[in-house]
Design a protein around this nucleic acid. Structure first.
Lengths: 360, 360
DNA sequence: CTGAAAGCGCTTACAG
DNA sequence: CTGAAAGCGCTTACAG
């Protein structure tokens, strides 16, 4: 009986394929063939039946570690996202896990801004487990591929050998150890979404626009800023004011306040994220400004919060769950030796109650 | 070279402990001893050094499948939660993953209400992978233990052999295949939290109280209802009205509306969840009621949404991340052969802007 | 149609 | 202080 330092061996050990073979009166190979679904033409139907019933009787489940060792595959994929505490990435996980499970793959997730930083983690793990020098909770040998949110570009260096797909990182090469051609991407059409927002606001009559921007140097936010500037440029008399903040309600409130407290405040606030929009609502309310009568506000993402706010938020819906699903599909393609084409998921402008014509 | 149906073998295979041994001019056993940290007194410091540097030079990472097979352990734990799309469980995961990673354990998560039901999943997996008859994305052989949200009680039957810890399921026996004594629990002090809410509202002068209750038959919600009734009972002239809903904003809005549209509407609404409170805000606004002047509203959980609402929500903070962390600590204790005592995490009343004295 | 055997990469008694 | 060997439970040529 194996006995590891801190762990008791289960009272009764689980049946193996050898046990099933014995029970069915056949060899281990036959059991493997039948249970692995590769028996047709090689094992008689009667034998197959008896193997199956023996397996059921014994409650046999194959040992995955053994299979993985033999096959050199783990059927596990790593999802790297900044956090699971904020609203956006839960659905990304859900979508990814859905398609993974459909193909017999599991998903483990690694986050790096949930309180602990990567280096701290490395130290923590090193303190206890051997070989624990990866900054991530999941060692790279345990996975077949990685699905990484764009923020993870540098971290990807860790997994140089591992097939990867980048999420929302833009069509250009991430500035890491990778070239364009080797990392497939799935992106949102954020530029189109921003153009739709600008067009919507312009049609309502807004000309002085404030941009409450996420202070994160990332393709997805640069693309938003660029599209906003481009969309506003042709409008006669248009002005663009910008304030930058972290992606949280408090920081966003402050940034919005800076814009609203100007001598010439904007009549509309375009926010890079729904969370930022929530902060903008607060800044408006604190100044007695009615949304949307005194101030129009827009968001990005369409997370649950967007419809919980009052009035409900006009925003661009980014299909987060679909991002996870498409990303996983691309990764599975890659693992199967195919070359997935870059994909773009269109954002959709959802007009709700937070936008209206500016006061005359 | 191994070659599996759908997967290419990596161009250059990863170095094994045998390669390291050769590079360092020692045996495989010595490599294992050194890298496993069990060498002191058994291997000379000089040899240890040379093994380490050989490992570094080759970029050696141990093969986890092999280690798991040998040790009969996976150092992986399954977290079963209803969803990762709603706000509460992200932090639970974060807390669990944090302590797990500190002990060299990984966490995989399994959700069952994210669109797909368990039986559907089983069918899906069966369609592709062999042996895929578990309803969960993670087969039970691949894990050492499970951390399960109370909603998962029936699902736990799947993992009869596996050490488990229940989260927020109450101190009594879950009505599944387990008895009290065999499943450790970590619970929230929801009854105390509810008592605090009632006391707070009563002190403000409220007597007609509406309970917008989650229509889920679960210990945590039954405990809230019981504590509410118990807290109100001694108050002279107190009345309790109840409406039931699903835990989403739309359903909650309808339930709150039913209470507010009565001839004798309540002056305060106690909601079982912050999401439900958001629905109550909407029902109030739709009727032109000011919160908190015309109607006080309280929530439960203190998710991000609570401070995004306007006015900010008075609620009971349930330390979700701590639940995950404590649960994982208990599970790790269990795996180490210890008997973790049941734990209760106190909720804390956070008074914000959504509660005030009723109108005279 | 079926079985005996090799081997995936580790860890750990055991023998020197 | 160090090495040779067994064995974890699978899958897959290979031989009958």
């Amino acid at each position: 009986m194996i006995r590891q330092g801190r762990r008791k061996v289960p009272a009764v050990s689980r049946p193996t394929s050898k046990d099933v073979a014995q029970e069915a009166g056949v060899s281990q190979s036959t059991v493997s063939l039948v249970l692995g679904g590769k028996w047709t033409g090689r094992v008689s139907p009667a034998t197959a039946r008896s193997v199956r019933s023996a397996a059921r009787r014994l409650g046999y489940r194959p040992n995955l570690a053994a299979r993985n060792l033999r096959l050199g595959t783990t059927r596990t994929v790593l999802l790297m996202v900044p956090t699971l505490t904020a609203p956006f990435f839960g659905p990304v996980y859900t979508g990814a896990a859905r398609v993974a499970s459909r193909h017999g793959f599991g998903v483990v997730v690694s986050t790096w801004s949930d309180g602990t930083t990567a280096p701290e983690r490395a130290a923590e793990r090193g303190a206890e487990g051997p070989f624990a020098d990866s900054p991530f909770a999941v060692p790279d040998e345990a996975i077949d591929g990685v699905l990484a949110s764009s923020l993870a570009v540098e971290a990807l260096g860790e997994f140089r050998q591992t097939p990867a797909v980048m999420l929302d990182s833009g069509p250009a090469a991430p500035s890491g150890p990778f070239s364009v051609t080797c990392v497939p991407t799935v992106d949102f059409g954020v530029a189109d979404g921003m153009r739709d927002i600008v067009a919507h606001l312009a049609a309502l009559g807004h000309r002085r626009i404030g941009h409450v921007a996420a202070g994160v140097d990332q393709w997805t936010f640069r693309a938003r800023a660029d599209a906003l500037a481009a969309g506003l440029a042709p409008l006669p008399g248009a002005a663009l004011l910008r304030a930058t903040c972290a992606i949280d309600v408090g920081s966003a409130k402050d940034a919005a306040a800076r814009l609203l407290d100007r001598a010439d405040p904007p009549t509309a606030l375009i926010c890079d994220d729904d969370l930022i929009a929530a902060g903008a609502y607060k800044a408006a309310r604190a100044r007695g400004l009615d949304v949307p009568a005194d101030l129009s506000i827009t968001g990005f993402d369409d997370v649950l919060l967007a419809t919980a706010l009052e009035p409900e938020l006009t925003t661009v819906r980014l299909p987060a769950e679909e991002l996870g699903a498409q990303g996983m599909t691309a990764l599975l393609d890659l693992l199967a030796g195919r070359r997935p084409a870059p994909r773009v998921l269109p954002g959709e402008l959802i007009v709700r109650g937070s936008t209206a014509a500016p006061r005359a």
